[in-house]
């Protein structure tokens, strides 16, 4: 069972994640609409996993990864983006991200990715 924080400016994606995990043992503990809010909620909620969008206002996904690294915050990360092109993926990989899901995603892909990341 994992506690998951969704960091994504789209409320729709939050709903998608919630629905995908509704009948699983995993729990969605919160929704942050940008990286800055996400960092604050990570400190408050201490989730096991975050799903992290790349393109967001205020602080985007790559800036969030940088900030997590600089502040020594250890959390498992699943990057989510419709723009999964090589440059952004490579940028995220530099920060140690290994799990990527491209939007839209099938519910079972999200559950499988969560199950796999918990074994990492």
């Amino acid at each position: 069972m994992a506690r998951i924080l969704v960091i994504d400016d789209s409320p729709f994606i939050f709903k998608m994640v919630n629905r995908a995990l509704a009948n699983t043992s995993h729990e969605v503990v919160g929704h942050a609409r940008n990286g800055e809010e996400g960092l604050r909620m990570i400190r408050e909620l201490n989730p096991d996993i975050i799903t992290l969008d790349i393109t967001m206002p205020v602080m985007d996904g790559i800036q969030t990864l940088k900030s997590l690294s600089e502040n020594g915050i250890d959390v498992k990360i699943i990057m989510m983006s419709a723009m999964g092109d090589d440059d952004l993926i490579n940028e995220a990989k530099k920060f140690g991200v290994k799990r990527f899901i491209s939007k839209p995603f099938k519910p079972d892909i999200l559950v499988e990715t969560i199950d796999n990341i918990l074994k990492d």
């Binding site: 789209s10 409320p11 729709f12 994606i13 709903k15 983006s81 419709a82 723009m83 999964g84 092109d85 090589d86 491209s102 939007k103 839209p104």
Partner: peptide
């Protein structure tokens, strides 16, 4: 909420297509 979701739908269609073309 429906309008936001359609924006996200459009974003996904174009984002995924452009990724293929760019790559």
């Amino acid at each position: 909420d429906v309008l936001f979701s359609m924006g996200e739908f459009g974003n996904m269609v174009t984002g995924n297509a452009v990724t293929v073309v760019n790559n």
